[in-house]
Design a protein around this nucleic acid. Structure first.
Lengths: 226, 226
DNA sequence: CCGAGTGTGAACGCAATGTGAACCAGCGGC
DNA sequence: GCCGCTGGTTCACATTGCGTTCACACTCGG
């Protein structure tokens, strides 16, 4: 089994003990660039990030994990009880979290739960919405069984939208979350990619991506069971 | 906001307190058939199932929740630490779990996390007044379940009014708070938008927006209804 | 019965978006 | 190196949605 990624280096003794006890091999990293260095070991099962003594560093690490070419899922964040109210879910930086003091059995249960949910080893990671299916491992997309030939950016954009059905995103938000935080470019770029996506989705499914005038774009039908 | 479904009935006092404290309305059910009875209230935001004193009953309840026509997501399971090693993830009966002793902040954080992940509008993103509901993150509005097709300005105006029910606003105030502080344009613009809002609300709900002659407009019932 | 205040229908004009095409940078193959 | 190809970005123009305004009808209060 490939080892779990753990931050920071060295991790708190409780965490190390808990992982050892539960039988999970792990490797600690201290800085974000280290991820790149380790990337070649493809098939990381996931990561555990501890954000107790350095919350900002931990969140930055989460961000780096999410942005990586191979999204390192799942991400489990360890926090202190005092930090809970300030946890911002909007950025979707982690898949689950664990509160100190760390109980080995809870840690184990959460890891088992996460691994099962993300289906590591079992089935490929999929994003699905209605007739649309994205295979995150093979970078393939299909709608009603028909394969879609998407470019990289088209795929990333569609993946992001389909992962948040019903939600409206401004062009600026899409640029920062799909293209990258530091992206500087015209907002009209989004329009063009949306247009191409709609074209490739086909006339019957073009409506999956809706324009919300003066705001941005939305994927999917009214999740209107308010 | 629709109430959370809670099992069993009555739930443990800690849970009830924690939910109340975090501001989540909830309804307790004691048996599975009760779900069917309650189903009509479509749009349950989720459920919390406590499996401490009756693990089998709790798991049966989880199964029933997953089986329903409207999958009642997300499901949060509350367990005791001793039960953790026996938790079976393979059936995918719950979306997250919480370990006793229950910390209100952790409960709140887990619910926030779940609501965000499942895409169900997070709580603060909703504006509700009677039959009217505005989903701030999908930019959708509905009244008595019927979706409203509002333009951007109509939506913003209604959002502002519905956020301050009972209060009267002059046209000038509305222009500065909805259109923008530096806006300079005719005050009659407000009238036209109000008219269109009333039309879209439908005859039966047009009265939600009342004209206060020589002053402005008010949304909802007056505060001091005699 | 008058006048201020408001409702209503229609028309105008701009800004937001759609659309086609050009531009450019990277990349692999002869 | 030169070439064509692919894909991302940008530009120019067409289109349309909708916010604004106006003119007129109506209502309420004194």
């Amino acid at each position: 089994m490939e080892p779990l990624l753990v931050y920071p280096d060295p991790p708190p003794p409780v965490l190390a003990q808990g992982l050892d006890l539960a039988g999970y091999p792990w490797t600690a990293v201290g800085t974000e660039p280290d991820i790149e260095r380790l990337e070649p070991v493809d098939g990381w099962p996931g990561a555990v990030v501890v954000g107790v003594m350095d919350p900002d560093g931990a969140l930055a690490m989460c961000r780096a994990l999410r942005k990586g070419d191979i999204p390192l899922e799942p991400v489990l964040l360890v926090v202190a009880a005092e930090q809970l109210p300030d946890l911002d879910m909007r950025e979707d930086l982690f898949d689950d979290f664990c509160v100190l003091p760390l109980q080995p059995t809870e840690l184990d249960a959460r890891l088992r739960h996460l691994f099962h949910k993300t289906g590591r080893g079992a089935r490929p990671e999929l994003v699905e919405y209605g007739d649309l299916a994205l295979n995150l491992e093979t970078y393939q997309a299909a709608i009603s069984g028909r394969p879609l030939d998407l470019t990289y950016m088209e795929y990333e954009l569609l993946k992001f939208l389909a992962s948040h059905p019903g939600k409206v995103f401004t062009r600026e938000t899409l640029l920062s979350r799909v293209w990258g935080y530091e992206y500087y470019g015209g907002a009209r770029t989004v329009d063009v990619h949306i247009r191409r996506l709609r074209a490739k989705l086909g006339e019957e499914h073009a409506g999956l991506i809706q324009t919300v005038r003066s705001v941005g774009y939305r994927f999917g039908q009214s999740r209107w069971t308010p």
